[in-house]
Design a protein around this nucleic acid. Structure first.
Lengths: 344, 344
DNA sequence: ATGAAAGCGCTAACAA
DNA sequence: TTGTTAGCGCTTTCAT
């Protein structure tokens, strides 16, 4: 790697000013009425010297980095990696890089990441937040910091948000259980419970049961610590099993819960759907070919990423997002498979 | 967001110099023998004013960005997202951010990403490359650009690399089939074939078969296009099935192939392991509770990320990686489950 | 149609 | 023990 070529080098060797070169190289030559001849010369020289602009200097000067941040709870979860992937594709197409962070559902870690991302002067942030309320993001709003919430949203905030119709999905699951004649239903949920997706799914589910005059006892409302899904699902399900008070159906509120529920039931030698029926929120590839195949509420995952990036880019470009565009709620659908249907 | 606080603001309000503040904030206070009192004051003021250093300016000045790039073929594949996650954790602990890119196994895309990442002045690069040879990375070496190859490595290169013992894993799989009395074995592979992991696994497998005087016919060496796994696995397996020439066992060379193989066999109503036995390279959570559970060669995924980041960081810090440290090959192990064992 | 010059916020050599 | 000063490479306002 020979000596780094800078704007000044080009300017000097051409005996013109840096301004001139900068203008031409940034495509503003015509706008400033710079001689075509001169422009050609500059372009040619830049190529000849193999000039590579120093993005750092540019960013430093303009305050823009052409980089965005993405914060999710765990990139290892395919739900998030699929969103990330779509965001990445869209971002690169527009010349943006994306820095991905996992927060492990920790508010502290999340704030930490946000701060570091901001100190890195990312142009915007897409975030699936674990926070209790929108305070931090409302600050963003008033500071005009481009950002979009995904998956988890907040009430009383002007922050743009892309999520799905969680309540409707939960309702579909409940009704499907009813159709199968199942009424003894357990809810496999997660803490922290303030997460909007969890509350929406829980409420949607419980209210549908309530409408059908079904109440689920406390011991069937299982709450698993996010940080310990791996052990707790099995543990609590085993306890329940040993208490002899098993439900006839389980609704698991996310893909991880569903997976570990599957694993636990298998260990307990409980047969799906004969002994117990199962529906999960969020579909996964293997649900389709597991034996039995697993019913799930399917989310338009990639579309979440797509819409979020679009909303972010528009903010970065200075557009105002109208109130009605600010809240995107995408539809979900229930994919009925073997795990929730009685073998006739 | 009130006015941005800069070093100068702190310096001014404390009536000291920017240098002083910079030194203290960068932890070089003691080294330069700065009064403890003064240091405390600076730290306190920084906190009080909620000072956030402008990393861009820092980077511009020092030429370091505290950012690294990670290029994999598809972050949506859990093998890569787990590696990415570990790298991220380690990176953040050291104050580094990571920009993740997916190359879709396209050499062109990969080069594109490398270029952009370099123009963004990342301090280093970790990459699972799809290229045919090490040329591009040898350039890095001579330019002293910190980088580490993961998963896929090259011969004849000084680039540090972290991978696993692919041949040994394949050999274990073959021998396990033998122990089960299985000799009619198909190999479910992928193109492009130049990828080192694929060739190593293929060679390890075929050579073990050869030692046992087993030759597999061409139609049992299935080669699936990376970009079309979703359709081709099913299609080729169906063709094979309809030809009436089914093997008694299949070794699938990566987790995606294994998953789609599972799906295809299920559609064809072929029972595992009765009709056909199956072993996959690279384990996944659901392999453990699928019915039947799936045997797999398990890789120390997180450790790959860990070792790679360590190697990268040492380069960034100016250390020389000795020849013997340069090539890390981690051990794998075969997890025998139901899919490859005859129900006695 | 082109140039001079200021300055973004920080670090580091050199002074004091 | 602390301060002065000179840029890093670029964009942009204001002159000419």
């Amino acid at each position: 790697m020979s000596k780094k070529i800078s704007l000044a080098d080009i300017a000097e060797s051409l005996r013109v000013s840096k301004t001139l070169v900068s203008l031409v190289l940034n495509g503003k030559g015509d706008k400033y009425g710079i001689n075509q001849q001169t422009q050609k010369k500059v372009l040619a020289k830049a190529k000849e010297l193999n000039y590579i602009p120093n993005v750092l200097a540019q960013g430093f000067r303009t305050g823009k980095t052409k980089t965005i941040g993405l914060i999710v709870s765990d990139i290892t979860n395919q739900f998030y990696s699929r969103i990330a992937r779509r965001i990445e594709d869209y971002a690169w197409a527009q010349g943006y890089s994306v820095i991905i962070c996992s927060s492990d559902e920790s508010i502290e870690k999340e704030i930490n990441r946000i701060k570091l991302l901001q100190s890195r002067k990312v142009d915007g942030l897409i975030i699936s937040s674990s926070q209790q309320n929108a305070d931090r993001f409302s600050q963003f709003g008033s500071a005009n910091f481009p950002h979009v919430l995904i998956d988890r949203c907040f009430k009383n905030t002007d922050s743009p948000c892309v999520t799905v119709d969680n309540a409707a999905g939960a309702k579909m699951a409940a009704q499907h259980f009813f159709e199968q004649g199942l009424k003894d239903i357990a809810l496999l949920s997660i803490t922290p419970e303030h997460i909007s997706t969890i509350t929406e799914r829980t409420n949607g589910f419980l209210s549908t049961l309530a409408e059908a005059k079904i109440n689920i006892p406390a011991e069937w409302h299982l709450k698993i610590a996010f940080s310990n899904i791996e052990n707790e699902v099995e543990q609590k399900l085993t306890e329940l099993y040993e208490s002899g008070n098993m439900p006839k159906a389980i609704f698991a509120l996310n893909n991880n819960l569903t997976s570990h529920c599957l694993l636990a039931l298998r260990k307990l030698n409980i047969s799906i759907p004969n002994d117990i029926a199962l529906i999960g929120f969020d579909d996964m590839l293997y649900f389709g070919f597991n034996q039995p195949s697993i019913s799930a509420v399917s989310q338009p995952v990639e579309e979440i990423g797509e819409r979020a990036f679009d909303l972010l880019l528009r903010q970065i470009n200075g557009e105002t997002i109208t109130k009605s565009e600010r809240f995107v709620r995408l539809p979900v659908n229930l994919i009925v498979r073997e795990s929730s249907t009685k073998p006739q």
